[in-house]
């Protein structure tokens, strides 16, 4: 079959934005082979999500009611496995997310499906489905094939595919998920600690430091530099994990999205996809890194290949 199945995902009633992008990817793949785009909406109240996924190019929306109000890996895995058995799609597309990290590998391992994660390109070569992902800190791209696999499960990187802009009028059907034994129990959510008066999401000018800073004792140097430039200090994850700066200064997927930022200076940051998730939208990005191959340079507008300490000293000297 040439049908493409998209699996939706939501948290606390909010749809994951990558689902619409997956629909865009599904449209391309399905039209290449004359297949249908089927979107499965999973959750306690699928009907609340369905209207926002009724997008152009979607042939059918399948409503799949699940018992748990929040994501539960066993329920998701059982429902998607049953959907695949029922619809035999060529590809199953889901967001590459914390939730899919929690069930997609189980689904693929048990079902014997083709499988790739964090995919940012997908196409056919003849009848072969191909997926592109990264390796070695984004320095290399890898094209994968799935010989002999009837169905391929792909988790898609956010912002890599374009969501359809127009709405559509797909048919809506429902599917009864098999009863799953939910072996993990949701207790509660914990919100991240607030920053003392400092809000990175509101800052317009941010200077972030990464692992290049090398030692806790060096952090003060860049605190001073940020002050001298009139920038707010941010950081990548290892700096927060080490406790060198508080967590509220961490930019990225599991930290802050710097929504108001106009100029972002990244020093000693390699440019991982998770860091980029919090800052790649910034209109002016300046990267300083000693590795000319660091992937941050392909997202930045200006770059200096050099030592962050040397640049910092010189900056302070010239700023007076």
């Amino acid at each position: 079959m040439a049908d493409i199945l998209v699996i939706s995902e939501q948290r606390r009633g909010v749809l994951n934005a990558t689902v619409a992008e997956a629909i865009g990817a599904a449209k391309e793949l399905a039209s290449a082979k004359g297949g249908k785009v089927i979107v499965a909406v999973l959750g306690a109240e699928p009907e609340r999500i369905i209207p926002s996924l009724s997008l152009a190019g979607v042939d059918e929306i399948v409503s799949v009611a699940l018992p748990s109000s929040e994501f539960q890996s066993d329920e998701y895995e059982a429902a998607v496995a049953a959907l695949i058995a029922d619809r035999t799609p060529k590809a199953v597309l889901l967001p590459h997310s914390i939730d899919s990290l929690g069930y997609a590998p189980a689904l693929a391992a048990k079902g014997g499906f083709g499988f790739a994660t964090d995919v940012f390109g997908a196409r056919y070569d003849g009848d072969d489905l191909l997926a592109v992902r990264q390796a070695y800190q984004e320095k290399v791209h890898v094209e994968l094939e799935f010989p002999g696999k009837q169905t391929v499960v792909l988790t898609l990187r956010s912002s890599a595919f374009k969501a359809p802009e127009e709405t559509g009028s797909p048919s809506v059907t429902s599917f009864e998920a098999p009863k799953a034994d939910a072996r993990t129990k949701h207790v509660t959510f914990h919100e991240p600690a607030a920053g003392d008066g400092e809000d990175l999401t509101a800052a317009e000018y941010i200077l972030s430091i990464g692992r290049g800073v090398a030692d806790e004792d060096n952090v003060a140097e860049f605190e001073d530099l940020a002050g001298a430039l009139g920038f707010t200090l941010g950081c990548s994850r290892p700096i927060a994990d080490n406790g060198w700066l508080p967590k509220f200064r961490q930019v990225g997927q599991s930290g802050k999205t710097v929504s108001a930022c106009k100029v972002y200076v990244a020093m000693g940051i390699s440019g991982s996809v998770q860091h980029l998730a919090g800052m790649k939208h910034v209109p002016h990005i300046i990267a300083i890194n000693k590795d000319p191959e660091a992937s941050i340079f392909s997202e930045a507008h200006y770059g200096i290949v050099g030592d962050m300490f040397e640049i910092s000293k010189e900056l302070k000297a010239q700023l007076g």
């Binding site: 129990k185 949701h186 991240p192 599991s254």
Partner: peptide, 16 residues
């Protein structure tokens, strides 16, 4: 009793 780290630094407490 574990915490699963979600997007944005929110954590979900889970028993298993």
């Amino acid at each position: 009793t574990v915490r699963r780290e979600l997007e944005g630094g929110v954590e979900e407490e889970i028993e298993v």
